[in-house]
Amino acid sequence: MKLTYTGKTKDVYALEDGNYLLKFKDDVTGENGVFDPGANTVGLTIEGAGRAGLRLTKFFFEILKEKGIPTHYVDANIEEATMTVKPAELFGKGLEVICRYRADGSFLRRYGLYTEAGQALDAFVEVTLKDDGRQDPPISEDALDMLGILSKDEYKVLKGLTQQIGNVVKEELAKKGIELHDIKFEFGRVGENKQIVLIDEISGGNMRAYKDGEYIEPLDLEKMFQ
């Protein structure tokens, strides 16, 4: 294996067969020793966080596989905290795609003049650029096309997959009495035909979820699926 990328919460290794191995770490994002899944820096290390994130990721990726929804997932090893994935090409330097079901987080901060906390949203899709230095700015469909990051046709596919996958996660959480407010995904292009597929992970740190009106911390959410 050859280390090709060192990330905040996982490292990436190239395998001889052309696939990649993601090594989930116990480092989590946050500031001043406080866990914050939305932060852009590593704040602390929590023992078992890597395996917990991978366990939930494996759970959801295998459901998506059964439903024929395209992802980069090949398989996972919980004990070693690793996931094997197909190579994927990023859109530009990376996009984050959020599917929102309730007004919360940055949506509420930006649009608070017109909305209130918890207002229902109809699987609203929002795209942001992965750019820590500029606080991951939102970007429109037109700008994505004009800047050559992805075409309008690709945007339609991206939006459709985001809502489809978001609804799968929402339904699985609902089975445990958990309400999903929003979830963040990443996508890439795979293979010669440049198929758009879900990449990265689906873990507690990628979503805001509530039970009986109380916010569920990501690691607590992951324990509910053990």
Rank of each mutant, 00 (worst) to 15 (best):
M1C: 09
K2E: 14
T4M: 14
T4F: 13
Y5E: 12
K10M: 00
L15S: 01
L15G: 00
E16Q: 15
E16C: 01
D17C: 03
L21C: 10
L21Q: 12
L22I: 15
K23G: 03
D26A: 03
G30A: 01
E31R: 15
N32S: 11
N32E: 13
N32G: 10
G33L: 09
P37V: 04
G38Q: 12
G38V: 06
N40P: 09
V42D: 06
G43A: 02
I46K: 13
I46N: 08
I46Y: 08
E47L: 09
A49C: 06
A49R: 10
G50A: 07
A52T: 12
A52I: 04
L54I: 07
R55S: 04
T57I: 01
T57P: 08
K58Q: 12
F61N: 01
E62F: 01
I63N: 03
I63K: 10
G68I: 07
G68Y: 04
I69S: 04
I69C: 03
T71S: 08
H72Y: 02
Y73S: 00
V74E: 06
V74A: 02
N77Y: 04
E80K: 15
T82C: 07
M83R: 11
T84H: 09
T84S: 00
V85H: 00
L90R: 15
L90C: 06
G94C: 02
L95N: 02
A103K: 07
S106N: 03
S106L: 08
F107C: 03
R110Q: 14
R110V: 05
Y111L: 14
T115E: 02
E116Q: 15
A117E: 14
G118Q: 04
L121V: 00
F124T: 15
V125R: 07
V127A: 00
T128L: 02
K130A: 02
G133V: 09
I139E: 06
S140N: 06
L147M: 13
L147H: 13
I149V: 12
K152H: 10
K156L: 12
K156S: 12
V157P: 10
L158M: 06
G160Y: 13
L161G: 01
T162R: 05
I165L: 12
G166K: 02
G166Y: 04
V168G: 05
V168R: 02
E172L: 08
L173R: 04
A174T: 10
E186Y: 03
G188P: 09
G188S: 07
V190N: 08
V190S: 02
E192M: 06
I196Y: 00
L198D: 07
D200Q: 03
D200I: 02
G205M: 03
G205N: 10
G205R: 00
M207H: 03
R208I: 04
D212C: 05
D212K: 15
D212Y: 10
G213V: 00
E214K: 15
D220T: 12
K223R: 14
F225W: 06
